[in-house]
């Protein structure tokens, strides 16, 4: 049986059968996609080493930011420390839009929009994980990491004054001048990235508990207000 990974809902509905790796996409097509879009920076397969990006053997089940000998962006290292692990779901979200999941990633890739392409690519990547047959389609702990957001939410105009008041809560930890001493800067983030990231925390897709709590009680208008404020902070 061949099942294309077309939606995360479908993926969850399928569930998992331990020890059986269901086909998730066309690995051959994935190999072509990899050669065209990834291979300039990433190696995979026998003798693969870190280049511009980390080598991608044994990627599934690996903690983000943990390929031996590779120097990651602070942002990726922090997501790994916070608990981000590469599963079909997290990788799917990352490939779709790298900066929405890991804001400060150095991976300069615009994202792969077609879910079938992503499924094909992941099928190819999975062939180079240690025991591909043991990689479940969706581990019980796997998390979807990109929130489902309607265009209305993304297009919402934020009330900047309200955002300024709400931001005072953020500034207990995130320094307004943008300096980063263990807690990342959020000053001058593009509004849309901000909205996506906050909804990802609100839906508990991004792993950090403080941010899940902070975002959890903000409604759509409040997130838009904060985004409007931080995007235009001098």
């Amino acid at each position: 049986m061949r099942i294309a990974l077309t939606s995360l809902g479908l993926l969850l509905a399928i569930g998992t059968v331990p020890g059986v790796a269901e086909e998730i996409g066309d690995a051959e097509r994935g190999a072509t996609l990899f050669a065209r879009q990834c291979a300039a920076c990433h190696q995979i397969g026998d003798g693969a080493v870190n280049r511009v990006g980390p080598q991608l053997n044994r990627l599934f089940g690996r903690r983000a930011g943990n390929a031996e000998g590779f120097t990651y962006s602070k942002s990726m290292a922090r997501m790994g420390a916070d608990g981000l692990t590469w599963t079909l779901q997290t990788l799917d979200a990352y490939i779709e839009n790298p900066k929405a999941l890991v804001s400060g990633t150095r991976m300069n890739y615009r994202g792969m929009k077609d879910p079938e392409d992503r499924a094909a690519l992941m099928a190819f990547l999975r062939d180079w994980s240690d025991k591909p047959r043991d990689i479940p389609e969706a581990e019980p702990t796997a998390r979807k990491t990109n929130p489902d957001l309607s265009p209305e939410i993304l297009a919402m105009e934020g009330d900047r004054d309200y955002g300024e008041y709400l931001s005072s809560e953020c500034r207990t930890c995130h320094q307004a001048d943008g300096s980063d001493q263990g807690i990342p800067s959020i000053t001058n983030w593009p509004a849309e990235d901000f909205v996506v990231a906050m909804h990802a925390y609100k839906q508990k897709l991004r792993p950090h508990p403080v941010m899940q709590m902070m975002a959890g009680r903000l409604n759509d208008e409040e997130i838009a207000a904060l985004a409007a404020y931080f995007a235009t902070l001098d």
Binding site: A81, D82, C173, Q175, D180, Q181, G182, I183
Partner: peptide, 19 residues
């Protein structure tokens, strides 16, 4: 994770004292 939590606390200290 424990190390990240500690480092986060250092970031918080810098943040709140600046605030």
């Amino acid at each position: 994770l424990r190390k990240a939590t500690y480092e986060e606390s250092l970031g918080w200290y810098a943040g709140i004292t600046a605030d």
